[in-house]
Amino acid sequence: MIINHPLLGPRDSEEFVYLGSTDLIDRPTNWEKSAAAEDFYQYQYIRENIAGDIQELWYHEQGDQSWLIVTRNTLTHEIKNVEFAQDFSRAKGRGK
C-alpha cells in the first residue's frame, strides 16, 4: 500500500507503524467518575471493526515521525484520504 503523506508525498506503508482506529484518540479523561472502569473497558478492548471505510492511526516511524489519519477501505485496501493526526485531533477540540 502507498500512503500519500501530506508533506512527503507517496510513501510505502512499510515505513509506518500501524496503531488502529481513530477511536483510540478519544481516551476517557475522567478517571475518577464511578463509570470510569466501564469507559476504559470500552475504550481499551471493544472495537467497531468496520468492514468498509475506516479512519485509522499510522505513525511514520521511518520518516518524519508524524502521526497520520488514513481513511482506508478495509475490504479493498483503497486509501481515500491522508491527513495529520494533529489537525484531526484539534478539529475535535483536543489540545494536540
Binding site: 500500500m1 506503508s13 488502529g20 482506529s21 471493526n49 482506508r72 485496501h77
Partner: peptide, 13 residues
C-alpha cells in the same frame, strides 16, 4: 499484515 482488513488478500512486504 498488521493493519485491519476484511480483504482475503495481503500485500507484498
Amino acid at each position: 499484515d498488521s493493519y485491519n482488513s476484511y480483504a482475503q488478500r495481503g500485500n507484498l512486504p
